[in-house]
Nucleic acid binder design. Structure first.
Length: 487
RNA sequence: CGGGGUGUGGCGCAGUCUGGUAGCGCGCGGCGUUUGGGACGCUGAGGUCGGAGGUUCGAGUCCUCUCACCCCGACCA
């Protein structure tokens, strides 16, 4: 047996800074060292590496299933949008203009009309819907696309805010305002269920204030999650009721059953790969990532261990028996022989694999394996016979424990605040979310932002009965708002 | 776009003040010994110092210009 220098488990995680010392640097380090993503040659762009992309694919599959279950179909619209089309909705273009990238040349020819690289696709999709809709019988149209969009960002952060990012954007078109509103809320609920169930991240569902609304929307709904470290908020999915703003400017007109010509009502809703960043920041610890089992690319990593050459063979045979016992589990066997087990333990912890299964000579003799949880580091000797039952059970236990601890943190770091100084103090000290009464006046909202950099993340659907005094101006207020700093 | 910082093998850095043959650690290849919480020995490969110009017998080091990236602000899914 080799001599282990150093002390506890943590001592071996070299270079990775502790969360509380510098959370932002911890985040950058973990993303890079776990091989989720790497820097690209173009500023603001990142390469999503195979491990990160496998995670995204699992997330996509789980969300895509839910979206389709509501009757939505997938399609694909072009990346290039003519300037005149993007410009039609005034608020929309005003909101996005600063971050749109333009194609001005095709080959050697200067284009007569420059083309926007989509920052979002309302314009081109509504433009197409106008052609497809003649009658109320053509409605609703329920379409989603998986794609990337481009927004020229001044200050990028891996996954959270990159110039090009991966997402899905759904765009629906309806005959009535009520139906569109219902759809917007329905899709927000799909997001809530997806993020809470698959990613083990608790969220607060609610509406955005006027000033935080999507450019061109009638109402914007959001799910907000509390990150670890500095307890800032991250908008993790949004859904917009566009009312008939886009229907009017894009001439989506139809003849209704009552014989009247009417403009259609639209929704749009999106969830991006920034939720990968949320997984990192919500669940990660000083040893690295902690991936929720339901979406983890590898759910259990098997580490063969041997001392003598003759043990190598028997261990390998035992490993394949373990693999067979776990046919329904996403398994990876780490057969590298140039790394010690200790090195592998640390690497797979850094990469957030929920379960580690150690298979060594002792396990061959006892017909078992040592199963270790990433979240608690609890070790269990599990017999081969128990394995098909025990491992999946452990995985779902980890999933729900991860949700519970994130939920507990969110609850403990959320406080009701009725004093403005306390609100500012909480923002300044990164104390978490503050729930406070707000009169609805944008001036009050704005002064909080100026003074403390905290913003209204959402007006939760879940409101207490009664009313109170606005935390800023003291006037009567009927809404409780979540104030927090945000990524 | 403002304020600050950094550019030297894949990564992290020293060397710059005071010019004189480009170094260290990790990583990487080969061979051997190893493997239950980041093993070790031997051996080998790999850079002309972000870029351009200048001063000098001689520039990683001094001067001028320039580019890129990072951090902190304003703006944003």
């Amino acid at each position: 047996m080799h001599n282990v220098s150093g002390g506890g488990v943590r001592g071996f995680v070299e270079d990775l800074i502790d969360q509380e010392d510098d959370f932002d640097r911890w985040y950058v380090d973990v993303v890079k060292r776990s091989e989720l993503a790497d820097d690209a040659p173009v500023r603001g762009c990142k390469v999503v590496r195979p491990y990160g992309y496998a995670l995204w694919e699992n997330m996509q599959a789980a969300l895509d299933r839910r979206i389709k279950a509501t009757g939505v179909q997938n399609a694909y619209f072009p990346m290039l949008i003519p300037e005149s089309m993007l410009n039609r909705e005034a608020e929309h273009i005003e909101g996005f203009a600063p971050e749109v990238a333009w194609v001005t040349h095709g080959g050697n020819q200067k284009l007569e009309e420059r083309l926007a690289i989509r920052p979002t696709s309302e314009a081109i999709i509504c433009g197409m819907y106008a052609r497809w809709v003649q009658s109320y019988r053509d409605l609703p149209i329920l379409i989603n696309q998986w794609c990337s969009v481009l927004r020229w960002e001044d200050r990028p952060r891996a996954f959270l805010r990159t110039s090009e990012f991966l997402w899905q954007e759904g765009h629906t078109c309806h005959a009535t305002a009520e139906e569109a509103e219902r759809r917007a809320l329905q899709m927000l609920e799909v997001y809530r269920d997806f993020v809470e169930t698959e990613l083990a991240i608790p969220v607060i569902s609610g509406a955005k204030s006027e000033s935080e609304k999507f450019a061109g929307a009638h109402r914007t709904y959001t799910i907000e999650a509390m990150m670890g470290g500095k307890f800032w908020a991250l908008q993790s999915g949004t859904s917009h009721d566009l009312r008939d703003h886009f229907g009017k400017v894009f001439d989506i007109e139809f003849l209704d059953s009552d014989g009247q010509r009417k403009h259609a009502f639209n929704t749009s809703w999106g969830l991006s790969h920034r939720t990968i960043g949320a997984i990192v920041m919500v669940h990660g610890d000083d040893s690295g990532l902690k991936l929720p089992p339901r979406v983890a690319p590898i759910q259990a990593v098997i580490i063969p261990i041997w001392r003598k050459e003759d043990e190598r063979e028997t261990v390998a045979m035992h490993v394949s028996r373990v693999e067979q016992a776990l046919s329904g589990v996403r398994i990876h066997v780490d057969r590298r022989d140039d790394k010690t087990p200790g090195w592998k333990f640390n690497e797979w912890e850094l990469r957030g694999v929920p379960l580690r299964i150690e298979v060594g000579p002792r396990d061959v003799h006892s017909g078992q394996a040592v199963v270790v949880r990433r979240d608690t580091r609890e070790k269990l000797a599990v017999s081969l016979a128990e394995m098909p039952e025990t491992v999946p059970t452990l995985l779902s236990q980890i999933q729900s424990d991860m949700f519970d601890s994130a939920f507990t943190r969110q609850r403990e770091r959320t406080a009701n605040v009725d004093d403005l100084a306390e609100l500012y103090e909480r923002a300044r000290t990164n104390a978490g979310f503050s729930l406070a009464w707000w009169c609805g006046d944008a001036a009050c909202e704005d002064s909080v932002k100026t003074e403390s950099r905290a913003t209204i993340r959402c007006l939760p659907f879940d409101q207490p009965a009664g009313s109170g005094a606005c935390v800023v101006c003291g006037r009567a207020a009927s809404m409780l708002a979540v104030f927090a700093r945000a990524y």
